[in-house]
């Protein structure tokens, strides 16, 4: 569950972000407490707290005094914006770099992307056959 080569607090933050992105935790609903994260992932509570606090600093979560942490309104849209930027740097840039090495133009890449079946297509095919 926890990947040993990456700061754990970042992994906790990412886990919460993913839950917000795929709707598992709705806006204005509570996220698990630091101690719950610590017990579930078997990590130091201070480390879990660091991950949660990072999202508070980013305005994704906010604290309700004496109750706990909640997902801020508009958090999902903001995460999608940030993750889209990351997507460009992490996936699109290396993709175009490798394509350039092989003499594939960006237009050809776009065509390949359109022609490549997505996971849902593959699943549909599997069901049909």
């Amino acid at each position: 569950m926890i990947d040993s080569g990456k700061p754990i607090f970042l992994q906790i933050a990412e886990q919460i972000e993913n839950d917000i992105l795929d709707g598992a935790i709705a806006e204005e609903s509570p996220v698990p407490s630091t101690n719950e994260f610590a017990a579930f992932y078997r990590i130091n509570p201070a480390t879990a707290g660091k991950g949660v606090n990072r999202l508070v600093d980013d305005g994704i979560l906010y604290k309700r005094r004496g109750i706990g942490m909640f997902v801020a309104t508009g958090a999902r849209a903001r995460l999608i914006g940030a993750r889209t930027e990351q997507f460009r740097a992490k996936f699109v840039a290396p993709l175009l770099g490798e394509a350039a090495k092989l003499g594939i133009t960006p237009e050809q890449v776009a065509e390949m992307v359109r022609d490549t079946p997505t996971e849902t297509h593959i699943q549909e095919e599997a069901i049909r056959s």
Partner: peptide, 8 residues
């Protein structure tokens, strides 16, 4: 050092 700073 902080354990999480060392990791990664």
């Amino acid at each position: 050092q902080d354990a999480d700073d060392l990791r990664g």
